[in-house]
Write a protein that binds this DNA or RNA. Sequence first.
DNA 1: ACGTCTTTTTACGTTAAAGTCAACCGAGAG
DNA 2: CTCTCGGTTGACTTTAACGTAAAAAGACGT
Lengths: 142, 142
Amino acid sequence: MQQRFYTITQLTQEFAITTRTLRFYEAQGLLSPQRRGRQRLYSPADRTRLKLILRGKRLGFSLAEISEMIGMYGKAPGEAGQLRLLMEKITARRTELLEKYRDIELTLKELDEVEAGARSRMAEIGGVFEDSAAPVLREEEA
Amino acid sequence: MQQRFYTITQLTQEFAITTRTLRFYEAQGLLSPQRRGRQRLYSPADRTRLKLILRGKRLGFSLAEISEMIGMYGKAPGEAGQLRLLMEKITARRTELLEKYRDIELTLKELDEVEAGARSRMAEIGGVFEDSAAPVLREEEA
DNA sequence: ACGTCTTTTTACGTTAAAGTCAACCGAGAG
DNA sequence: CTCTCGGTTGACTTTAACGTAAAAAGACGT
C-alpha cells in the first residue's frame, strides 16, 4: 500500500481552486492534511474529501452543511439515539436533494422551450426580416 | 382578465422569506411590482418571477446569474448575433445543470449507503451490545 | 553558496445577500 | 382625532467564503 501524496499546488491545479481556498477549508476543519515539516501533504483520502466538498458547493450547500454531511461518513455513532439522529438527518438531506432534482428538471424543461423559440426566430431571420413575438412568462397555478 | 394582486406580507408568508428580501430583490432589479401610492402590489407574474428566483437560489445560483437566466425568458433579441449568444448561454446552463444532476445522483447513492450501515448497526444494538465497524470512505480513481 | 521559487503564517480587505434598527407615512377603527 | 397596523425608506451590521498583501522559511537548480 504505497501512500502517494499530493502537494497543495497539485490539488489547486487539478480542481481549479487556490491555495487560499485549501488552507481555508483546513482552518474550517474540513481537511487536515499531514505535515512534512511545515509543508502540507494531502493523502488520497484528503483528495476524496475535497471532491466531496466541491460537489457540495456545486449543489449550493454551505461549508457548514457540507461539514455535517461529510461527518455522516466515517463516524459510527455507538448510541441508539445518535443513530436515530443520523437517520433523520439523512432523510432531511434526501428530501432536500430530491427537491433540487425536480428544480433542475423544471429548469431544463424551460430552457428547452426558450431554445425552441430562439431556433424558430433564427429560421425566420434566415429568410426575411420580420418581427417575432416574444415568448411569454407562463403562470401556472400554485 | 381579473388582475389579482399580492401584498408584500402575503408573499413573505407564502414563501417563508422576509420583506427585506423582497425589497432587496427589487433593488437588484429582479422584481418591479406596481405601486399604489407607496405600497407595492405584486402581480401573479411577479409572483412567478419570485418562484423562479427562489428556485435558482435553491440550486446555488447567485442573484446575478438568476437575473441573467430570467432575462432569457421574456426577451426576444431581434438580431442574429444576439440569438446565437442566447443559444450559447442556454447550452452552458444546460451543461451546468446536468452536472448538478449527476452530483445529486451520486450524493443520493452515498446517502443510501450510509443509511444502510446505520440500519445494520441499529439492528445490532437492538440485539446485544457490540462494537461495530465504521463505514470507510472509498477512494475511487479519478 | 546563491538566487529563485514555493510554501507558510498572519492580518486585513472584499463581496453577496441579506438582517437589524429607527423613523416615518397613510388608512381605517373607535 | 388619536391609536394602531402595515408598509416604506435608509443606514448600519453581519456572515460566509474567500482575495490580497507582507514577511519569513524551506526547497531546488546551477
